[in-house]
């Protein structure tokens, strides 16, 4: 094989686009030709560096909810094109939340698992997505833990931990009271880059603690744990590893 034809096929060799026979022929040439081999090594290193380091982005929660809502409306024959245009995007999110609940309801029936467990996640997921609508995230907007914690007094019957995690890269955004699983509960809101983390708290039936447990659904992650007679649920579209880091910081700080 000539160097010219070898070099013309290096990309395809690298990308696994050659037949086995063709690949073997290239490899034979590479074994005896330092110039081509060096060119191949450079290409291979470039490919490795780029594919290992190039960013993969997550579409933000709000965008996903917006799209699910818009798709539901666009597919619905009762909504005309002109009405659709006038819909504000936050209404589309509301439709997206409805879809999320409907589709998880289907999962519930077909999966035939523990209904109690599933409904808790359904409600938390719906509450989390709803909270991302403008004006729904916080009732008290403050980066100051000594403002957020007292705000819950008298509004809810548990007093959640509100640690300051600024230095760990999880700034406090605020708090709100939300209605989930049949009662009004405190929600402490933290941020991480463009992601939101909602931390829900319930009075726990057992007084002891329990280590964090995670599960995922529809691209959202949940980490739940018990501490000081309170059951906590952290919900976010942040990746699981970072959500666990958050929970570790949260539990260590209070």
């Amino acid at each position: 094989m000539q160097c010219d034809s070898c070099q013309a096929a290096l990309e395809a060799r690298l990308d696994g686009e050659l037949s086995m026979d063709e690949a073997r022929e290239i490899d034979r040439h590479l074994a005896i030709c330092p110039a081509c081999a060096r060119q191949f090594a450079t290409l291979d290193e470039t490919r490795r560096l780029v594919s290992e380091n190039a960013m993969r982005y997550n579409a933000p929660d709000v965008l996903k909810a917006r799209i699910r809502g818009a798709v539901a409306r666009a597919a619905s024959p009762t909504v005309t094109a002109s009405t659709r245009k006038t819909l504000r995007w936050w209404r589309e999110i509301a439709a997206g939340v409805a879809i999320a609940i409907v589709s998880s309801g289907i999962t519930l029936v077909t999966a035939n698992r523990s209904a109690v467990r599933y409904s808790a996640e359904d409600e938390l997921l719906a509450s989390h997505v709803r909270s991302l609508m403008p004006g729904h995230l916080t009732d008290v907007l403050s980066t100051e833990q000594h403002t957020v914690k007292p705000w819950f007094n008298g509004r809810v019957d548990v007093s959640p931990a509100v640690p300051n995690l600024d230095t760990a890269g999880f700034p406090l955004i605020g708090g709100r009271a939300d209605y989930v699983r049949g009662r009004v509960v405190p929600v402490v809101v933290y941020g991480r880059r463009q992601h939101m983390i909602n931390v829900y708290a319930w009075p726990s039936s057992s007084p002891g603690g329990s280590p964090p447990n995670d599960l995922s659904r529809n691209g959202y992650h949940f980490v739940t744990w018990r501490s000081g007679g309170i059951e906590y649920w952290a919900v976010s579209d942040l990746n699981v590893a970072e959500l666990h880091t958050f929970v570790a910081m949260f539990t260590a700080a209070h």
Binding site: A37, T42, L43, T46, R47, L49, V50
Partner: peptide, 24 residues
């Protein structure tokens, strides 16, 4: 596709200062 990919990778190799001196 192949020729664009080849040219793109050549540029990236220069930008990232990749130059394999020794071929194994």
């Amino acid at each position: 596709v192949m020729s664009r990919l080849a040219r793109a990778r050549k540029r990236l190799a220069v930008l990232l200062q990749i130059d394999a001196r020794e071929a194994s």
